[in-house]
Amino acid sequence: MTEDHIDGNAAGGALSDVFAVDLTAATGQCSSCAQSLALAEALLYTQAPGLIARCPGCEEVVFRLVRGPGRAWLDMRGMTCVQFELADS
C-alpha cells in the first residue's frame, strides 16, 4: 500500500457545503467491519473525480462525495448511525 491518502479532516470544507454542522467531528460505525470511527480519522483519497473516505480499519469506502457545478452528491452507505455533537438550545 502506498501513502497516497490524507486524513479525513481535509473533507471539512467540502462537507460544509452540504451540512450545517461540522461533520468531521461526527462519529459512526463502518458498515463493513463495524469499527467505530470519527470522520476525521477516515483515510481520504482526493486524487480522484470525487472525495473517497475509507475506514482506517478495513479500508472499505465509508463515504463518497462528488461536487459538480451547483450540485453535490453524497453517498454514506458505508457508515451507519452517524452521531453529531450539537449544542443544546
Binding site: M1, T2, D4, H5, Y45, Q47, A48, P49, I52, R54, E59, V61
Partner: peptide, 8 residues
Amino acid sequence: MLSAGPTP
C-alpha cells in the same frame, strides 16, 4: 495519478 483507494 487518479485513484479511488490504495493502489493494488
